[in-house]
Design a protein around this nucleic acid. Structure first.
Lengths: 107, 107
DNA sequence: TGAAACAAGTTTGTAGCGCAAACCTGTTTT
DNA sequence: AAAACAGGTTTGCGCTACAAACTTGTTTCA
C-alpha cells in the first residue's frame, strides 16, 4: 500500500512572495515588532543593503508592509511595519507549510 | 519585551534546491514510493512536461534522484527514484522548516 | 573652511531560474 | 503510407535575486 503524504499540488500553491527566504525572514522579524528600522533589519537578517531594499520594495508593492520615512535628529531613518494583509499572508503561509510537513516521526 | 521568534538568518540557509515548490513536490512524491514514472509524476504534480523534465534534471544533477530509463513493451518509460542523499536533504529541509514555524497558536 | 571619509538607502547590471512552447524520436492508427 | 499521437527534451523568454556602483546628505579632520 502506497503511503500517501500531503497533496503535492498544494505545494505549488504556496505564496511566492512569502516563500522567498529573504522575504520570509523580513516578514518574520516584522511580525514580532511594531516597527523595525532598515538598519536593524539588515543586521538581524544579514542581507546586503541593496538586497534588503529591493525585497522590502517588493513586499510593499504586494501590500505586505509599509515604509515609514522619518528623521532621528537630522539623519533620515527608514522603518517598516507589517500590514494586516502581510500578517494574514504570513499566517496563511505558515498554515500551508504545517499542512505539508509530515507528522514528525517517519519510520 | 520583544517577542523573539526563530532566527531569521536560519531562514536564509534553506536548501534552495529543495525549497523550490515544484521540486519539493517531486521529492515528496518520490519519498513515498520506490519508483515513480514520469507520467505519473506529471499527473500527480500537475506540472507541464517541460517543467517536470527540467526539475528532475536539476534534482539529478544535485544527486537527489536517479533516472531509470526502461521499456514497457516497446515504448520507453522514464522513471525516477529518490536517492539516499535526496532523502536526507528532504528530511533536513523539513527539520529546518519545523524549527522556523511558530509553535502553533500565536495569540 | 574645505576636503575627505562616512552613513543610509536606491538604482543599475548581470547571472541564473522557472516556465511553457516548440521540437524530436519513435509508435499506433487509419 | 500518411497522419495522428505519446513520451520526453531543448529552446527562448520574462522575471528574480543579488551585489556593485551610485546618490544624497552628514560628520570628521587638517
Amino acid at each position: 500500500m502506497p503511503k500517501n503524504g500531503p497533496d503535492p499540488r498544494a505545494i505549488l500553491d504556496l505564496d511566492r512572495i512569502v516563500h522567498e527566504p529573504a522575504r520570509l525572514a523580513i516578514l518574520t522579524v516584522l511580525a514580532s515588532a511594531e516597527e523595525v528600522s532598515f538598519l536593524f533589519l539588515q543586521r538581524v537578517t544579514g542581507l546586503s543593503k541593496g538586497n534588503l531594499s529591493s525585497h522590502t520594495q517588493k513586499l510593499e508593492a504586494a501590500g505586505y508592509l509599509e515604509t515609514v520615512k522619518a528623521f532621528q535628529g537630522r539623519i533620515p531613518v527608514t522603518s517598516f511595519r507589517i500590514t494586516e494583509d502581510g500578517r494574514t499572508a504570513l499566517r496563511a503561509y505558515q498554515q500551508q507549510l504545517r499542512a505539508l510537513l509530515p507528522k514528525e516521526g517517519k519510520p
